[in-house]
Amino acid sequence: MPHPDHASATPALRIRGLAHHYGMKSVLRDLDFEVAEGSFVLLVGRNGAGKTTLLRLLAGLLRPSRGTIDVFGLDPLREGARVRAALGWVPEDRAWPFPAMSVQAFLRYHAAYRPTWDPSWEESLVEALELPLHRTLRGLSKGEFRRAQIAAALAPRPPLIVLDEPTDGLDPVFRERFHELLADHLAQFPATVLASTHIPRELEGFADTLAVLRGGRLDPVLPRERLQDEGRSLHLSVPKGWAPPQLDSGVLLRRAPAGREELWLTLAPEEELRARIEASGAGIRELRPLRLEEAAVALLEEGTR
């Protein structure tokens, strides 16, 4: 099976010193980011953190206030059409200039711009997503429109897939089916994926990198291996008047005291952490790996305190 090693050295995407502001409101500032070809990045951020702005900048639909973007060696500003031709994009909104188009015409319209459009894969997508081909876009529900967007994004087998809240509006059956389809798609047509979601749990089986957008930057960017090695949830029992150990910044993601017990979420080598906690006089009642969603939520909360 043709499969790029996801640790491949060629970056699919390279961003340097990116800044963007709308009038006086600064959304992104000094953002650096690199995505290796074949990796699957889960992008999380609070409402208004700038996720959609970042994705629109990648597609060349917005001009950055400062900084450079490089998508497969192309500059989206100067070579926007070529970048968009490499991009399968499921946008967050349903802005579309031709509401009287049928779903069929919508797909034909996309196919016309995409030399790599795969008619037989399109057929499978239409079937799996149960697209109402002969209805007009105007009359579609949010979920139906979203399913049409997904088919249009995947049928050209793009090397870069950008998903902005892909399951928004989908019913539970189509949510599952979308994940099935995504797995099937990636197995046949390996791609680099950037997915923004408010429900990290949904893409936990896919993501190999968690990128947290906060304060206008992507920080931290955590490979799954690091989360597995270092992300921990600890249930502590603490003595009366306990003074917690001083930890380096970025180690303690969340601390929830409850009387003589505390719940800690941490990101640090386990042995060292265990030693410092035990030296402080606290007991560790339970220690388990952190789930991706727990880490995402804790990091987002930490960023706003």
Binding site: D184, L186, G205
Partner: peptide, 13 residues
């Protein structure tokens, strides 16, 4: 790999 990834809804990688 394709079948199992699809069945488990996980990344084929």
């Amino acid at each position: 790999v394709r079948e199992l990834a699809r069945q488990l809804r996980v990344n084929p990688n």
